[in-house]
């Protein structure tokens, strides 16, 4: 008789078992903030199309305490998402060959983060300029 009886361990709570998986789950969860913020901007566009009164009402809503709290939360979540996104990026793309050598992973990560920071600053400067 076959004495084999392989035991399969359950997967419940797998993501709590390793800090790396926790980071992964937070990364995935912060994507919801990215989606939520896209929705906020889309609603803004919709209100703009509805005329001046709707648009000013929308702007006023954004200045409320809850809206500001949401913005702060979204900023933190989206920053974290950006950071972990570029951290994994070297693993997800084909090798970049520069001068016959493979570009190191950290260079790609640093390049991505620098581009994200530059884009954010440029946008901030643009909006700041327009608002004044």
């Amino acid at each position: 008789m076959n004495k084999r009886r392989p035991y399969v361990r359950p997967m419940d709570g797998w993501w709590r078992k390793n800090p790396y998986f926790v980071e992964y789950m937070i990364h995935e969860a912060t994507a919801l903030f990215v989606a939520a913020y896209a929705a906020v901007l889309l609603i803004g566009l919709l209100r703009l199309a509805q005329g001046e009164a709707a648009w000013t009402a929308w702007l006023a809503t954004l200045q409320g305490g809850w809206a500001i709290l949401f913005h702060l939360l979204a900023l933190v979540a989206i920053s974290y998402h950006t950071y972990t996104w570029f951290k994994i990026m070297p693993r997800t793309m084909p090798p970049v060959i520069v001068g016959g050598k493979k570009l190191a992973g950290w260079v790609i990560t640093a390049g991505g983060l620098a581009a994200a920071a530059a884009a954010s600053l440029a946008l901030l400067a643009l909006v700041w300029g327009m608002a004044r």
Partner: peptide, 26 residues
């Protein structure tokens, strides 16, 4: 694969299997 990436982290031979998987998604 959902790009967890831990496989490449633990690989003792620096194979970077996550990279092979993700290149093949493309």
């Amino acid at each position: 694969c959902t790009a967890v990436g831990y496989c490449s982290e633990v690989c003792p031979k620096h194979v970077d299997p996550a990279n092979a998987v993700n290149q093949n998604k493309t």
